[in-house]
Every structure is written in C-alpha cells, then in structure tokens.
Design a protein around this nucleic acid. Structure first.
Length: 534
RNA sequence: ACCCCUGUAGCUCAGCAGGACAGAGCGGCGGUUUCCUAAACCGCAGGUCACCCGUUCGAGUCGGGUCAGGGGUACCA
C-alpha cells in the first residue's frame, strides 16, 4: 500500500541524512489534509529541530533538499515545518493496475469471535442486530486479512430465564383456556408469548419442562432464520447445556478448589474474584435448594471450553447491558489459570430507534420491542446493515426508521451501490461499442486531477482495511466507501469515460473498473449486496 | 456511591496513537441534464470543537477537574 511504501522510502532516506539522530520507528507519515499540498507528510523536522535546538522550518528545508526517490514527484516544505511529498502519477498507476496486494495481517492467527448469543427467550432486538452486523463484518474482514476465524453463537438454554419463560407461557395457555392467571414476576409479557402459547396449546403440550424445551427450540430456530435473512451465518451454535454435559463446569470447580479460590458463605459457594481485581467476590453456586450454578460459573466453563479448542485469541462482542460482566468473567478466567487478557470484549453501544423525532424504547420484557424480524419486514437487509455499521462500536447509534425507509438520495447505502451500478453501466456501454478496458496504456495519458484523485483513493483501500482490522471497527470501511463513491461521482461529472480517444477510453475504463472492484470488495465485507444495475 | 459510553454546524456524526486555515451527510437557499444511469454534480449560508486548568513549539485530539445526557452496577442471563 502507498502509505507503507512511502514510509519505508522516507525512513531510508532520513536514516542516511540523520545518521543515528532519530530512531526509525518514530518517523511518522500522515496524509496531508489539503490535496494541493501533497499526498503524505512528515513532522520529523519538529523533532529534529527540538533535539538540535535548531529552527524547525530551516531544518525541514535542509532535510527536504536531500530526499530523492523516483516514486516521489515533488517535495515541499510548509509552515511551520511540514515536509510534504507528492507521489508520482506513474507510481500510482503502476500500483493501481498491478497485482492487488494481499494483506496478511493475521499471519494465520486463529481467532474465535463470539457474538449475538441472544437468549432463546424472545426475538432478537436491535442491539443484538448491531452486534450481528459488526461481528459478521469483522469475521469477513479478518478472513480476508490472513486470520482464521471461527464464529460462535452461545445459546443460554439453561438457567432461570428459560424457566421463567416456560412459566410465562404456561400461564398464557391457562389464560387461553379461560382461567384467570397471575403472570410470574419478572416474566415475559410480549405479544409473541401469547402467539407461542397458542401454538403450544394446539400441540397439547402441558408439562412445564416440555413447554420449556419447545419454546427454546422455537426461538433458536427463529434466531437462525432471521440471522440467515440478515446475511449472518455462524460456524458454531453451542449450547450451555452441552458445555455442562461435557463436564466443563466440574472441571472449573475442581480448578477453583485446587487453587483455593472458592469458599462457602451464607449457604452459597463464592469465587475469590477480588484476588484478581474485582470489586467483590462473586457467587458461583447459589444457596437455593437445587444449588444451581450462576451464569458466571457456566460462562467461565464455556470459556475454558473455547480455550481448549486452541484459539490464539478470543473475542466477544457484547451489548452495553453486559458491560458489568466483563471484569468478573476475566477474573474467572484468571482463576482457572489463564492470563486476564485471554478474552477481549468489545462493547457495541446501544441503538436508539427514532421515528419522526420520537424515540422508541426497547426492552424485551416490556413487550414494546422493535425486533430484527420487524425491522427486516420493513427495511431491506442492505439498509439495516449499512446503518448499523455507520458508527464506531463505542458510539450510541441513532437509527432513524424514516430515513432508512427513504429509497432515494438521502440514503447513503444507495449512494454507494449506485456508484458501482453506474460504473458497470459504463463498462457495458463500452462493450457494446466493442471497447474493452486495457491495462496497456501510456501512463502519461492519465493526467487529469479527477483521475489521479480517484486512483489515489482506490489505492487507499488497503490502508483502510488495515485500520479497520487494527481497531476492530467496520465503520471505518463504511465511511471510506461513501467517500470513494463521492469521488467517483465527481470524476464522472467532470470527465467522460467513453470518448473519441480510444487509448484514453481504455485507460479510464481500467480506472473505473478498479473502482468498481474496490466498492464490491468493501460492500462484501460489510455484508451488503452490490447490484450491477439499479 | 461506583463503573462504562457520549458531549464538534439546525439534525445525525467523521476527524486515524497532538500538527497546517475545523469536515461530511441530511435539512435551508440557489444552480447543473442536446453527451457514458440526475438514486448524480456544483455553489452559498451555518461552529467561542460543553466548561475550566495543565502538558507541549503546537490540543477538538493527551492528563486532571467541573457540568450535562445515555447505559450499567443480582445468589437474571
């Protein structure tokens, strides 16, 4: 990629000029904010001047005068003391039309990435949908950059919530039978419970445990279906019950006992998480009759299982409501002998659904949910994904339903897709006239500002991918695609691709073809379709 | 009380490990189509980067504090 090459070149040059004055890795290369003043810039003169107690501007001029390289078209010094480089067009075109760079950032590292993991007690809400979009894009991104990923969905099919769900359904069934009922405290009240109750009533299931099983299977199936519709597939769906059956919980309990990290108090078993920096110790086995396990215990067991499957890194993507668990879980993982940074957790912040300025609150229990199912009933998958990938993970996200429904210019998804469709249309047109694009042209034929800017922007793609991977932030790519589309549209307005000069036409076809490939690649990573025509 | 996230143009947000006169989209106003898709493009208006201190040659960016908004702090998952 350009940035890497220019960094290497400049470092080499500076190394000679500066001798040992400055460590190579401290030389930073940035993009220049203003197009007219070059492509890349270094602030090295400030550093050198500070060390030598010299004037920064003069130092910059001195350094600049001594740098020379065929890929650098020109060097200029700007006040206060920036040294700017403009890349030669030849080099840009050579890179653009050459073999696409294979980015091997991961170097075969195995990453397990767990996301969504919504409880099978109701439909998937929009925050989980956001996690799904982010997680799925990250998987695609990582797989294209030299990582080996495994995506996993953890199903909480045990525990109190599923029993509460079953009880809620049973009461609804009784209600359908004309009885007055009392819904369990903290139970589930959504309309979907009544629908499910009707189904279960028809099947003639009355046993509470059978109701529970039926309901859980029902929701797992529903989640799989809707995620499939959303373009998200998981390598593994792993169940809490399976982890328990495997004996992982006992393993974990043994480890705790061996290391003297668990103790009895008030009839419950506690884990000394404070030893690892938690604010308080946590209960792992409850004091109730059945001595049931807490979520924490089972979750530690689950993560032990993940680690036994030999992954180099474990990543979880969680919603904001799970923020408080991170510490305890990491302490639990340390308690079984793994380093605290074994598990990295990324929190995607909440999603605010807005409609005509009014916000719609969401809670699974309250029954006023806006679910992924409902969302996809009204808004195309591409739009939902794009909107959910427009903010950094840590940003609260406003999802404007009205805007999402707009089928036109306001909607940035179509803006990007349209750029691709437009290019494809031009290429089709050219083919009808018997013109194919060709990489064999004199580089000097590409010289218009709009062409060069487009070419340089396409080349930035590799840098963007690198940034997105490094930060685990797909939105960086989303922004880039909007930017690329804008630059293409501008180019289109200013320069004709198909024109009377055949060689120029072919060159421009090659340029826009690369642009289309880049948009397509980017949209694929975001899990968004890329139509040939619109 | 403690923890996490956020506070940049009327609205929604970019601003990448400090740098060059603060950017985009939407909304507002005004333009562009004998020609490759107008789902496009161009121009104008609009900001004491919440506030205060500090570090620095240089702070929207880093540190401390204040204020404001959202979320979280279960023997629920």
């Amino acid at each position: 990629m350009l940035r890497r090459w220019i960094t290497i070149v400049i470092r080499q040059q500076l190394k000679i000029i500066l001798q040992k004055l400055f460590p190579e890795e401290k030389i930073t290369i940035d993009h220049v904010p203003r197009e007219k003043q070059g492509d890349y810039s270094t602030n090295i003169a400030f550093r050198i001047a500070a060390q030598k107690k010299a004037q920064p501007y003069e130092t910059a001029q001195e350094i600049a005068s001594r740098i020379q390289h065929p890929m650098i078209e020109s060097i200029s010094v700007h006040k206060p003391a920036f040294i700017n480089f403009t890349i030669s067009n030849d080099y840009v075109l050579e890179k653009l039309l050459g073999e696409p760079e294979v980015l091997d950032i991961g170097k075969g590292q195995k990453i397990m990435i767990e996301f969504v993991s919504a409880n099978p007690t109701g439909p998937i809400n929009i925050v989980s949908a956001r996690a799904a979009a982010v997680g799925d894009s990250l998987v695609r991104l990582l797989n294209r950059t030299g990582y080996k990923t495994v995506s996993e969905y953890y199903v909480n099919d045990g525990g109190k919530q599923s029993r509460l769900l079953a009880e809620s359904i049973r009461q609804r069934i009784r209600e359908l039978n004309g009885k007055t009922v009392e819904l369990p405290k903290g139970g589930y009240y959504g309309d979907y419970i009544i629908d499910l109750a009707k189904k279960i009533k028809e099947k003639g299931i009355t046993d509470l445990e059978k109701i529970r099983e039926y309901a859980i299977e029902y929701f797992i199936k529903e989640h799989k279906q809707i995620l499939h519709k959303f373009g998200v597939e998981f390598n593994n769906w792993i169940r809490e019950s399976a982890i328990c059956k495997k004996g992982r919980v006992d393993e974990v309990l043994d480890l705790f006992r061996e290391r003297d990290l668990s103790y009895m108090k008030d009839g419950a078993v506690w884990l000394r998480t404070t030893k690892f920096g938690d604010n308080e110790d946590r209960v792992i086995i409850k004091s109730d009759k059945d001595h049931t396990y807490t979520y924490l215990l089972v979750d530690v067991a689950y993560h032990l299982d993940k680690m036994k499957r030999r992954h180099d890194r474990l990543i979880n993507i969680w919603g904001p409501d799970h923020q408080a668990q991170i510490k305890s879980l990491q302490c639990g993982i340390m308690a079984i002998g793994y380093p605290g940074d074994t598990l990295e957790v990324f929190i995607v912040q909440q999603v605010h659904l807005t409609e005509a300025g009014k916000s719609v609150k969401m809670s699974k229990r309250a029954g006023t949910i806006k679910t992924l199912v409902e969302l996809l009933d009204h808004i195309p998958k591409d739009v939902v994904r794009f909107f959910l990938l427009m903010r950094s993970n840590s940003q609260h996200l406003d999802f404007d339903l009205a805007l999402a429904l707009e089928q036109s210019d306001e909607n940035p998804v179509y803006y990007v897709q349209y750029a691709h469709a437009r290019i494809k249309s031009i290429i089709r047109k050219a083919q009808e006239q018997g013109i194919e694009y060709s990489d064999n042209f004199d580089n000097k034929i590409i010289k218009e500002r709009e062409e060069i800017v487009l070419a340089k922007t396409v080349l930035k793609y590799a840098e963007v991918i690198e940034d997105a991977v490094r930060n685990f932030e797909p939105y960086i790519l989303t922004y880039y695609l909007i930017d690329l589309a804008r630059i293409f549209h501008y180019f289109y307005q200013k320069q004709r691709v198909i024109n009377e000069n055949r060689e120029l036409t072919q060159a421009r076809l090659a340029l826009i073809n690369k642009t289309a490939e880049t948009i397509k690649s980017g949209l694929e990573i975001l899990g968004i379709s890329c139509p040939e025509r619109m």
